[in-house]
């Protein structure tokens, strides 16, 4: 039986690595410190494995065959895949047995994820791990959700997948301590006329819903208003999954700022699971 030591939510954007100096140095330092604090917090829980809920940005997957959900079952993951990302190439350890367990149990539970035994992770996984200072030897299981190409799985389905993951992790005997990092969102537009116009009203309302603990209201708001907050905001499906895995634990934001010059509402939070 594994213990979930922490569930965290955090935005990601390649701009953090490619154009970090688009914002004042003091703000950049403040944001980077918030990511580092998140990393310190979840490493303090001494996890043996990390589930990374993230999304592929059309690098591993293309429109010839695009999975709604994909569970990584590799021994290791190279990253980044983007030739243009300002990040050092690195190898992140994978927990193949854990990924395989989650995959098989998901199918038993009537979810139908695809699986991958060879993925090169993109900035969506790498950026928060790098900024949080996570040890690359901490084995991960990537669980990727399609948030980048409609049609996409619903917010509720993503919540339910997270609920399944939380229970399956708790039932797993292969490791003792597991952390979850859900990464993406909040408001941002990628390559649209709204790019750089963060919808702070959406973000504040969304975070307030998360903090209220009202799951149905949060899912409803995410579903009904995501269209006002940018295509990048579709990544809050990972926050839905984290909320499902948290199984009612209280959520608190640890950082939020609308950063128009990074094109993103930068939000970080955690669920009080321990």
């Amino acid at each position: 039986m594994a213990e979930i030591t922490g569930i965290y939510t955090a935005s990601h954007t390649p701009v953090m690595l490619n154009f970090p100096d688009n914002i004042p140095a003091a703000l950049k330092d403040e944001i980077f410190a918030a990511y580092k604090a998140m990393g310190d917090d979840f490493m303090a829980g001494k996890p043996d494995a990390l589930i990374v809920l993230s999304n592929d940005h059309l690098h591993n997957f293309f429109l010839d065959n695009f999975p709604a959900y994909c569970i990584g079952c590799a021994e290791s993951y190279e990253s980044p895949i983007e030739h243009w990302l300002h990040a050092k190439r690195r190898t992140i350890a994978g927990d193949q047995a854990f990924g395989s367990y989650l995959l098989q149990n998901a199918l038993e539970a009537e979810f139908d994820p695809s699986f991958s035994m060879e993925m090169v992770l993109d900035h969506g996984s790498l950026t928060p791990l790098e900024l949080a200072g996570v040890d690359p030897d901490l084995p991960i299981v990537p669980v990727l959700i399609n948030c980048v190409q409609p049609p996409m799985p619903t917010m509720r389905r993503s919540y339910n997948l997270g609920k399944f993951l939380g229970q399956a992790i708790a039932d797993y005997d292969g490791v003792e301590r597991v952390a979850i990092l859900a990464t993406g969102g909040i408001s941002h537009d990628i390559a649209t006329p709204r790019m750089g116009m963060v919808n702070e009203v959406f973000d504040e309302t969304f975070l307030s819903h998360m903090e209220s603990g009202d799951v149905d209201a949060t899912i409803r708001y995410a579903t009904d208003f995501v269209h006002t907050a940018g295509n990048g905001c579709e990544e809050i499906r990972m926050w839905m999954a984290a909320m499902g895995a948290a199984n009612g634990a209280a959520f608190e934001r640890t950082y939020y700022k609308a950063v128009n010059d990074w094109y993103t509402g930068i939000g970080i939070g955690r669920f009080r699971v321990s």
Partner: peptide
């Protein structure tokens, strides 16, 4: 797809 456009730019 805007992500492909962004990466291309």
């Amino acid at each position: 797809n805007p992500y492909l456009l962004r990466a291309h730019c």
